Amino acid sequence: MTAKKLFDYQNDENLDLFVLIKTADVRIAKNGKQFIAFTFQDQSGQIGGKYWDASDEDVAKFTAGQVIHLQGKRELYQNNPQVKIYKLRLTTGDEPQTIDQFIPKAPVQVTEMQDEFGAMLFEITNPNWQRLVRHLMQKHQAEFFSFPAAKTNHHAFSGGLAYHTLSMLRLAKTIAAQYPQIDEALLYAGVILHDLGKTLELSGPVSTEYTVRGNLIGHIVLVDEEIVRACDTLKIDVNAEDMLLLRHVILAHHGLMEYGSPVRPQVLEAEVLHQIDELDASITMMTQSLQHAEAGQFTERLFAMDGRRFYRPVEDPNLDQPTE
């Protein structure tokens, strides 16, 4: 019999399983006592839980990245699932201790994604863009194919960064075929590089956090810096029009300055890239949340989607399938 995972348990059901501590934030309650706000994770997803009256020993013992045995009950708090913790301990002996088995992964093998990216590179017909993309992809290859695309919101799983980028590339190819006025090479190069700065912004697939550079600078500026350095290495004029266009579509991909882009899209390919990014992230967030909702019920509120809840129809067989 297969062991149950976090999202195999229903509300008000007692749970007893092994999980990974994704985050462990020490906070102070109203009564002045410290507690730990946990995020527990396995391959089915992640759920929060609070460990009240935590001792200093508890704080030192139960840290992010530890595999633990958890006993508690699944509850709803403000329509969001959480775990009421009864007991937790570190694993021992022959119990599960390998972190990798608790981390969700992209639904496509890394080798398959690498092959598809390799084929798409030949469709970047501008020689400067192709040389630049090849250089930066090679430089950040290990992180690009293992990092998540975000800490919590969308594609927050191992390989999520590459999978999100690949999904966008597929959308870009379909859209470019429909609208021949789009510069395919510019769009494809922009898609591949748009989130590459997350290899510097994030810490990795396990207990993902923002790095100091990530917090203080952010992935949009970080990747532009990488482009400028690469142009110097490759002897490409960074101020030539083709490079200014590529830098612009990447710098503008969040769409609005209040969302982190220093400029708004001002060329066709920049607007298309922004819309593709929004579409892929939104579909993934909704799909993941809907998979955890019961048929005929609404999802939890999605903060990244204006706090909206989404309804899962009673007959909806597609949501039981992988997102691939």
Score class of each variant (00 low, 15 high):
residue 79 N to F: 09
residue 80 N to E: 14
residue 80 N to M: 05
residue 81 P to W: 01
residue 81 P to H: 07
residue 82 Q to Y: 05
residue 83 V to L: 05
residue 84 K to H: 12
residue 85 I to R: 06
residue 85 I to Y: 11
residue 85 I to T: 10
residue 85 I to F: 13
residue 85 I to N: 04
residue 85 I to S: 07
residue 87 K to L: 01
residue 88 L to Y: 06
residue 88 L to C: 03
residue 88 L to P: 01
residue 89 R to I: 00
residue 89 R to E: 09
residue 89 R to D: 02
residue 89 R to M: 12
residue 90 L to E: 09
residue 90 L to W: 06
residue 90 L to M: 10
residue 90 L to R: 12
residue 90 L to T: 12
residue 91 T to M: 01
residue 91 T to N: 04
residue 92 T to R: 10
residue 92 T to C: 12
residue 93 G to C: 05
residue 94 D to C: 04
residue 94 D to Q: 14
residue 95 E to L: 07
residue 95 E to V: 06
residue 95 E to K: 10
residue 96 P to E: 04
residue 97 Q to V: 01
residue 98 T to K: 13
residue 98 T to R: 12
residue 98 T to N: 12
residue 99 I to F: 00
residue 100 D to L: 08
residue 100 D to F: 00
residue 101 Q to P: 03
residue 102 F to I: 00
residue 103 I to S: 05
residue 103 I to M: 02
residue 104 P to K: 03
residue 105 K to S: 06
residue 106 A to M: 09
residue 107 P to T: 06
residue 108 V to Q: 07
residue 108 V to K: 10
residue 110 V to D: 12
residue 110 V to P: 01
residue 111 T to E: 11
residue 112 E to N: 13
residue 113 M to Y: 01
residue 113 M to K: 01
residue 114 Q to W: 06
residue 114 Q to V: 00
residue 115 D to T: 15
residue 115 D to F: 08
residue 116 E to V: 10
residue 116 E to R: 10
residue 116 E to P: 03
residue 116 E to K: 15
residue 118 G to T: 03
residue 119 A to D: 07
residue 120 M to R: 15
residue 121 L to K: 09
residue 121 L to C: 01
